[in-house]
Amino acid sequence: MFSAKPFDAALYSTLSLAMAFSGPWFTAEQLQMANKVCLWAFGLDWLVDYVATSPSEVDEIARRCLATAAGAPPTVDDDLTRLLADIRDELAASPAFAVLGPVWRDELQRMLQAMLKEWRWKSAKTAPTFDEYLGNADNLGFSFAFAAHWLHTTGPDIPADLGQVREASWAVQRVIRLLNDLGTYERDVSWGDLNALLLGTSRAEVERRIAELAARSRELIAPLRPAHPELAGYLERQMDFSAGFYQVADYWGTL
């Protein structure tokens, strides 16, 4: 699944550095799941955005992934569902899985639905509005990866404020979606991807929205600190890492 040229050494090292920067208080074992799920999501993104040639192919990818996440055996000779099954089984061993497992599966479904929506926009050459595009930020996959990390690092005492944690995650995801667009504009143009700057929105306007969304994200993160200091810090540092990283680099290699 990772044999395509854009999966170069820089992608792997940068992913692991992003996780390490975002949670320096976590052990390597605790960060392992975030690394694995992020890498899997990059493989999914590649298959959906650049390999699939029809909406039925994307629907089939989504069907296989959702079935696997729900407990079905992986498809024979399918690296995507084989790796997802490994992730699922490892997460299922967590004492938090009974409560956070459904959250993880819901985030997977949200991501897949958002990827399909973006695929259809691009296929039909129908540009969404800026707000429609931002509202589809689940296609980035940040909240899906965060849900896996949350599940993997949480003990048997499950927080009661699941909705607050998820809302903060979605807010950070929107910030990173736009930071990514500012940093990858040239690549998105050459690869034929959607980008906020291709929707009639100026760079200055995108930067203004990022500032507003980042401020809102910090407001949502702040109440989580007393009960969930590590998760709150991880969310904020993911956002701050992206703010610096996308000014100088990108995850993907060249086509």
Rank of each mutant, 00 (worst) to 15 (best):
T75M: 08
L100E: 10
N139P: 07
M115F: 09
A69Y: 00
Q113C: 06
P102C: 11
W46K: 10
T68M: 00
A92V: 03
I87E: 00
V48H: 02
A137C: 14
R110L: 14
L47N: 05
L134P: 09
W121Q: 10
W121P: 11
T53R: 12
A69E: 00
L134H: 10
T126I: 13
L84E: 02
T75K: 08
G101M: 04
M111K: 08
L83R: 14
D106L: 13
G71H: 14
T81H: 05
D86G: 11
F130C: 12
L66S: 07
P55R: 10
E60M: 15
V58S: 00
F130M: 13
V99Q: 04
A70M: 12
V76Y: 06
E132M: 08
A70H: 12
G135V: 10
D49H: 05
Q109I: 08
Y50I: 15
S56G: 11
T53S: 12
L84V: 01
Y133K: 08
D77G: 02
P74N: 07
A92E: 06
W119P: 02
D77Y: 11
S54V: 11
P74Q: 01
D86T: 11
A70F: 04
A124W: 05
S56H: 07
E57H: 09
Q109W: 07
E118N: 05
S123M: 13
R88Y: 00
V51N: 04
L108M: 07
A62L: 12
E118T: 00
E90I: 03
A69M: 12
W119R: 06
A96D: 01
A114R: 04
Y133G: 08
L112Q: 00
A124I: 04
K122D: 05
P95A: 05
V51P: 06
A52L: 15
S123T: 14
E57N: 08
A92N: 04
I87N: 01
L80H: 03
W46S: 11
L84D: 01
K117A: 10
S54N: 11
